[in-house]
């Protein structure tokens, strides 16, 4: 009987995931994801670093290896949300903030046509923007998007559809 009592604990320990390794492996990808969300690389790197520090501190809590990447992405995602929220407060009464990736200064890096799309994306409600980014940048499935964003699969699906429609309207497409 003793063995049985011990085994669940042992299993949990074995399943523990090294979050740091997940971060190291996906560092560039995560920074890119954050960049697409917040617009500039410096902030994106900060967001990823911050998420890394936080999750690293709580690494003992993560017990499901299959969800490690989704967990890490959520951490980065939440960081991006905080940044966007902070900006919204700071810039509410000031000039609209134009982060570099979709601003005129980055014309050398990203073509005008693309920047137009990015700007339209920025104008969407945050949840739609996030869902679209996960779908069309990371090519995640509905279920993965749902896990990352902490919503249900069907909500993810409908959010993407609505976001896509809104984006089309913003860009003046009739399709």
């Amino acid at each position: 009987m003793k063995v049985e009592q011990l085994s669940p604990g042992g299993a949990l320990i074995r399943k523990r995931v090294d979050v740091a390794a997940v971060f190291a492996e996906h560092h560039v990808g995560l920074v890119r994801l954050a960049l697409v969300m917040v617009g500039d690389q410096a902030t994106a790197e900060d967001v990823v670093q911050e998420a890394f520090t936080r999750t690293h501190a709580g690494r003992g809590r993560l017990r499901d290896p299959d969800k490690a990447l989704a967990y890490v992405r959520s951490a980065v995602f939440n960081g991006c949300r905080s940044v966007m929220r902070r900006r919204a407060t700071v810039f509410r009464r000031a000039v609209p903030y134009e982060p570099p990736v979709w601003s005129a200064e980055s014309a050398a890096l990203v073509s005008e046509e693309r920047r137009e799309v990015l700007r339209a994306l920025l104008g969407l409600p945050s949840r739609q923007r996030e869902a679209l980014t996960l779908r069309y940048y990371l090519d995640l499935s509905d279920q993965e998007i749902a896990e990352t964003m902490g919503i249900s699969g069907s909500t993810a699906r409908s959010t993407i559809a609505r976001g896509l429609a809104a984006l089309g309207r913003a860009l003046g497409e009739d399709s």
Partner: peptide, 28 residues
Amino acid sequence: PMEDRLREALAEAGATVDPSTLSPLHAS
């Protein structure tokens, strides 16, 4: 076409990150 445009725009924005310029992650 909207999906394609969005996909390309995001890919291009993401590609502006040069992996060699990233500062390494620092762990506590």
